[in-house]
Nucleic acid binder design. Structure first.
Length: 287
DNA sequence: CGACTTTGACCTGCGC
DNA sequence: GCGCAGGTCAAAGTCG
């Protein structure tokens, strides 16, 4: 089983020219969430590009707004400005700001969250990481326990987006799961926030996955999803951190000047918060 | 019976 | 100001 998965993972990584997941994470698959959002208009299907290929990857790769020719590492950017802009009173704060209150449920909590926040008060948005996985399963097993708290139809997509929250008390990590309508076999998962607890040990695969990745340490739920369920990791992105050093990113919506670089038409991906989810993997990269 | 899902309503930000 | 879309809440339903 594990062998099979390992094989699968390697295959994929090989495609993107990486010999290991770490490589992959540490070299180029770096785009920050906002960038992706712009590129994809996150979700991808509502992106400004023409639907070109049947697959999301093709979609990205062929995106006229992206420079995919270079072999250089990717990258991205998210302008902090954009980020700030997006954050005004981020709704997601409602709950997060009320930490102890999150379980206080009921109207009181609802009202509190609605009125308790000061006007104009801003809070930084939680780091987010998104990645695409080829899988028939929408909700990928990643080692953590999640509770679905909502589902919404997505504009221009026949597939709904599901919202999940980590069930561990005091852990405000959330994730969104949606399927690419261009390639229904691809599931786009976006994590937001950091887990402040270890992966539930009762879940299978944890050790195997860590072993497989030669990595141990709490945290990275998503890693555990690789070896399971016939999933193929397609892309991921991580946060803002180095996009500047890599160069780039001016792609303000439609300006077509973006500088994302990918290794040959390969999957790419997404971003943002991997470093939060996989702190140990990024520590090197960022230090 | 607790944990989780479903689903309609509600809230908020944003563009026009 | 209005309408739309994304995100969240919470009651009701389902499952083990």
């Amino acid at each position: 089983m594990d062998d099979h998965h390992v094989e699968q993972k390697n295959t994929y990584l090989e495609e993107v020219s990486f010999t290991s997941l770490s490589d992959c994470l540490q070299s180029s698959l770096v785009m920050d969430y906002n960038s992706l959002e712009k590129v994809f208009k996150f979700p991808p299907y509502s992106s400004p590009f023409q639907p070109v290929s049947p697959s999301s990857m093709g979609h990205i790769v062929n995106n006229p707004y992206l420079n995919l020719n270079s072999n250089s590492p990717v990258v991205s950017s998210s302008s902090n400005e954009a980020e700030l802009k997006e954050n005004p009173n981020d709704k997601s704060d409602r709950m997060e700001d009320n930490e102890g209150d999150q379980h206080g449920v009921g109207e009181s909590s609802k009202q509190l969250t609605k009125q308790g926040k000061k006007k104009g008060e801003k809070k930084e948005r939680e780091a987010r990481v998104a990645f695409m996985t080829k899988s028939e399963i929408d909700h990928l097993e990643d080692g953590y326990r999640w509770r679905k708290y909502g589902q919404k139809a997505v504009k221009n997509s026949p597939y709904p987006r599901s919202y999940y929250r980590c069930t561990t008390q005091k852990c405000n990590v959330k994730k969104r799961v949606e399927r690419s309508f261009q390639d229904p076999s691809i599931v786009i998962t976006t994590y937001e926030g950091k887990h402040n607890h270890p992966i539930p040990s009762t879940l299978r695969g944890t050790v195997a996955a860590e072993h497989l990745l030669g990595h141990r340490g709490g945290g990275s739920g998503f890693l555990h999803s690789f070896p399971r369920h016939h999933q193929e990791f397609l892309m991921m992105k991580h946060s803002p951190v180095n996009y500047q050093s890599v160069g780039s990113m001016p792609y303000e919506h439609g300006h077509g000047t973006s500088s994302y670089n990918f290794n040959n038409n390969q999957p790419v991906v997404d971003y943002g918060l991997l470093q939060d989810i996989l702190p140990s993997m990024f520590s090197k990269h960022e230090s």
